[in-house]
Amino acid sequence: MGDDGIGVTVAERLAGEPLPAGVAVVEAGTIGLGLLDLWQGYERVWLVDAVRMGRSPGSWRWLDAADLLCLEPGGFDAHAGPAGVLQLAMALDALPQEFSLLAVEPGLVERRMGLSMAGRRGVAAALAELRRRLECGE
């Protein structure tokens, strides 16, 4: 589905690089409620995904839990999207110390293989930002 694969591509590329101790990269697919298990034992959790924000394709921004709940309001349902999982984690007091979503604006989300030019730019920019934060231990 074109640029819907931005998050997967970032995860695959980052997983192939040397990472600092204690850092793990997981391509979690549509894991939903399983996020609660996945982030157990970690202090910081960064999600990376394509998010329609009405910005320039290929651009990115960090969203925190409050931003995400504004973007995707509503209760917990079968989709168990990040907002529902966040609400449940908050209610359970099971949020990691730091939670952020690196949201990348997709270009083309349609039935096609591979990323658009804007999607590829978004992947490169997201990787650079993640490397920067990992290197400076932010």
Partner: peptide, 22 residues
């Protein structure tokens, strides 16, 4: 998922699992 998170709120008179956490 269906039993505990989607269906059971119907039987506890709440709109989702979230109020049941407390």
């Amino acid at each position: 998922l269906q039993l505990f998170f989607l269906a059971i709120p119907d039987y506890y008179g709440v709109s989702s699992i979230l109020p049941l956490v407390r």
